[in-house]
Amino acid sequence: MDCDRMKEWLEPYAAGQLTGEPEARLKTHLEACPACAKELRWLFALKASVRAQPRPALPQDLRDELMRQAAAAGRTRKALPDWMESLRLSWRLAAGFGLASACAAAAGLLFFSRFSSAGSREISLDEVLAAHSRYRLTMPAADRDAIFSDLGPRLAEGGGHD
């Protein structure tokens, strides 16, 4: 007889957690094996003795203290009105929307500043100095008109820096 295997099943059997074919096999085995039957008696007796141990009741002062803490924790949560609670719950959505809006605004600003500077009749001092430097650095090899080609038409239209 396979006592080793059967003894592995004793504990789950005593706990009511052995089912199906293993349970049927163990029951059959127990009828024929006094040693395993005795081990099962030990198991049941030990379990019953552990269950029978006196356990003190929950102290009233501990129960009162836990109830007091529960009430305090509940009050803290109820301090916010319901509509604010709803807003608080959707803060992630709001934060995501805000971030997306900020990114869109920054992109728009960049786009606007780039194209508005190219099309503007206003010529900044920096632009004039940069063109001048390019001309000075490359002369006489460079063509003056080519260097100032970008500024020329705008100057001709009467734009200029104050």
Binding site: M67, A70, A71, A73, G74, R75, R77, K78
Partner: peptide, 8 residues
């Protein structure tokens, strides 16, 4: 149900 009731 209020949180307080649940906790209690």
């Amino acid at each position: 149900m209020a949180s307080q009731e649940k906790l209690e």
